[in-house]
Computed example of a mutant assay.
Amino acid sequence: NCQTDFVAKDENFAGFSAKVAAAALAANETDAAKIAELKLEDGSTVEEARIALVQKIGENIQVRRAKIVEGENLAVYKHGLKIGVVVSYAGDAATGKGIAMHVAAFNPVAVTAEGVSADLIAKEKEIAEAKALESGKPANIVEKMVTGSVEKYLNEVVLERQMYVIDNDKKVADVLKSTGTTVAQFVRFEVGEGIEKKAEMSFAEEVAAAQAAAK
């Protein structure tokens, strides 16, 4: 991670990122803290190289996350500097590339419904139950409402159930079947996701904070 687009486009930052990725892959390591301890080709650790780059560029840079994707074929798609996707697949290359574009656009959470984490489903059930109970309907109706809501959620977040970005008349599952393609795994990274942003203070709040600091 860096803080500005200017640094993201800088060849020093890009070079550092490539070296870190190569070191992480060689060590089969995805834990950011452990990646920081890995040695680079020049003998320095990733952390030492990071600190040197921060001092050179004058902007905070962090190694935050990494994923290793393996498979028969890998399709890679980058949407500008904001979104990157890697899809592990077997079958048709054009379909693999199309699925990578689809993942970038629709941000599914799993390939199949079985792959959706129990925590996500439990959270969705909790939200659906709260809404259903507000309706004041009988328990058996509430149960059906909750089941329907969870099914709707799965249709929205499961890759195979989504409508294909390249052909909105077909579901991804239909496209995969017709082209003899299977998806084993995908990873989607979006710049800034998972990082809580501090809410900007209003002008009045800024004045009040300044006055409080001056006392």
Rank of each mutant, 00 (worst) to 15 (best):
E59D: 11
E59K: 09
N60S: 15
N60A: 15
N60G: 15
N60H: 15
I61Q: 05
I61F: 00
I61H: 04
I61G: 12
I61C: 08
Q62K: 11
Q62R: 08
Q62E: 12
Q62P: 09
V63F: 06
V63G: 10
V63S: 08
V63Q: 07
R64L: 09
R64S: 14
R64Y: 01
R64C: 11
R64H: 09
R65S: 15
R65M: 10
R65E: 11
R65T: 12
R65C: 14
R65P: 12
A66Y: 07
A66M: 09
A66C: 14
A66H: 09
A66E: 11
A66V: 12
K67I: 03
K67V: 06
K67Q: 10
K67M: 06
I68N: 09
I68T: 14
V69N: 05
V69I: 00
V69H: 01
E70R: 05
E70G: 14
E70K: 06
G71R: 03
G71Y: 00
G71S: 08
G71P: 05
G71E: 07
G71K: 02
G71I: 02
G71F: 01
E72R: 02
E72W: 00
E72D: 14
N73Q: 04
N73F: 03
N73K: 04
L74D: 03
A75S: 07
A75P: 06
A75R: 00
V76A: 12
V76R: 04
V76K: 07
V76D: 05
V76F: 07
Y77W: 00
Y77V: 02
Y77Q: 01
Y77M: 01
Y77P: 02
K78S: 12
K78T: 08
K78N: 12
K78E: 12
H79T: 10
H79N: 13
H79C: 10
H79S: 14
H79W: 08
G80M: 09
G80N: 07
G80I: 10
G80Q: 09
L81D: 14
L81R: 13
K82A: 12
K82F: 14
I83H: 08
I83C: 10
I83M: 11
I83P: 06
G84C: 12
G84S: 13
G84H: 11
G84M: 13
G84A: 11
G84F: 13
V85D: 08
V85T: 05
V85M: 02
V85C: 12
V86D: 06
V86K: 02
V86W: 00
V86T: 10
V87E: 00
V87N: 03
V87A: 07
V87Y: 00
V87R: 01
V87F: 01
V87M: 03
S88T: 08
S88L: 06
S88A: 13
Y89Q: 05
Y89L: 04
Y89C: 06
A90D: 13
A90T: 15
A90N: 07
G91S: 07
D92W: 04
D92G: 14
D92K: 05
D92H: 06
D92F: 09
A93L: 12
A93V: 13
A94R: 13
A94Y: 05
A94Q: 15
A94E: 15
A94C: 15
A94G: 15
A94W: 09
A94T: 15
T95M: 04
T95E: 07
T95C: 07
G96M: 03
G96F: 00
G96H: 03
G96A: 05
K97I: 04
K97H: 08
K97D: 11
K97Y: 02
